[in-house]
């Protein structure tokens, strides 16, 4: 099953490689990993999307907690949560396709950030499936380049992750 882990980690050199090293050394799977400092600059927050049986995910959580620099680990998939991902996609937008591309971006609530006479660069946020759906809606040959951040997640309501 797919799990989204939120991790608070000391903002120290090497913390990221300790975490990614743990995943590769123990053969755990990483679908995506995002990291940036929090409002408290001494700490970073990481979101890791992984997949595995309950036993494996339990081990992943325990092994992460064991790392000296990891402050807290929460499995967001244990409760209600919100998940968002940002994608920048450069598409061919010439001739008759140009209007169609604009319409499609609007439907998906995308924003056009950059325009040339042959292309649009579109910004899109949402759950991963929405971004997938957008890409599927475009004819494959029209996609020139994509870049995705991987998922970030946060608990709903009173569910708060902090020290």
């Amino acid at each position: 099953m797919r799990h989204i882990l939120s991790i608070l980690v000391e903002n120290e050199a090497g913390a990221l490689s300790r975490i990614s090293g743990l995943f590769s050394a123990r053969g755990y799977n990483i679908e995506s990993l995002t990291v940036a400092p929090t409002e408290d600059a001494t700490m970073s927050r990481m979101t890791i999307v992984t997949a595995g049986s309950d036993d494996v995910v339990e081990q992943i959580t325990k092994q992460l907690n064991k790392l000296v620099e990891v402050v807290k680990v929460v499995d967001l998939t244990d409760g209600n949560h919100i998940e968002r991902e940002l994608m920048l996609v450069k598409v061919r937008a010439a001739g008759k396709d140009r209007d169609e591309m604009k319409r499609l971006a609007d439907i998906f609530r995308g924003r056009i950030l950059d325009v040339t006479d042959k292309s649009y660069t579109i910004e899109l946020t949402g759950p991963g499936e929405k971004l997938d759906a957008f890409l599927q809606a475009i004819e494959p040959g029209a996609i020139l380049e994509t870049v995705r951040t991987g998922a970030s997640g946060i608990g709903r309501g009173e569910r708060i992750l902090r020290v």
Binding site: D55, E58, Q59, K62, Q63, N65, K66
Partner: peptide, 11 residues
């Protein structure tokens, strides 16, 4: 002492 040693190979 190590939670990760528990239920690692055997429940």
């Amino acid at each position: 002492i190590d939670p990760s040693s528990i239920s690692k190979r055997v429940r």
